Computed example of a mutant assay.
Amino acid sequence: MLTRRTTAAAVAATLLIGTPAVAAAATPRTTPDSRTAASTCGRSVNPNTYFRPGMRHAGPSAWIGSTRIQLRYGNRPGGPRYYWATITHASRGDKVTLYWDIDHGESWRDSGACSATVHSGGAQNTRAVKAVHGTGFHLQAKACGHHASRTRCTTSLP
């Protein structure tokens, strides 16, 4: 009798302990690390020099008065898509931020933000962040700007 209880307890413990390991092994990690580009923009590029003008495209815009916040995207021929945010007709000290999330199945995981501050000239862009895609996930990005004590964001692009 003691042997059956011990065996049953051992089997139950093995199932309980083994279940997360089995689940983790059955579901491989395919999403990038959430810390890839938090405040430093991670592995990013300067969109002004990395993409030829014909390879830069305008995405959705948002307005605060005459200040425009825009999500931009581009790629090199045959290369992956990159996203960045721009602000134009802005004032010194205004900020523009690129936010991105990774859509993984039914859950969203915040992946990061990349910001830049207007120092002169009334326009600024963030660095460009490479879009990532894989089995069951993709990156979605939007641009937000802060001007005249107000913040506005664009719609997002997948």
Rank of each mutant, 00 (worst) to 15 (best):
L16W: 08
I102W: 07
A116F: 08
A26Y: 05
T154C: 07
G134W: 07
R56H: 02
H89S: 12
A113V: 07
N46L: 11
D101N: 11
P53L: 02
R43S: 13
V129C: 00
T151C: 01
R150H: 15
L71F: 05
G93S: 09
P28I: 09
A24G: 10
F51K: 04
Q140A: 11
S61Y: 01
S44E: 00
W100M: 03
L157P: 00
H146M: 04
A37V: 06
H147I: 01
S39M: 10
R81H: 06
W63V: 09
H119R: 14
N48H: 14
S91L: 05
R127V: 01
T49C: 04
T27K: 13
T49H: 09
P53R: 09
A9I: 13
A8V: 10
S107P: 00
L139H: 02
A143Y: 06
L98V: 08
I17D: 01
N46T: 14
R92I: 15
R35K: 14
D94H: 08
A128E: 03
S149H: 15
A85S: 12
A90R: 09
D94M: 06
P20H: 13
C153G: 02
A58C: 00
K95W: 01
R35F: 13
R152E: 06
M55Y: 12
R76D: 04
P28M: 08
S61Q: 14
A141W: 04
S156E: 04
T155Y: 02
D110W: 13
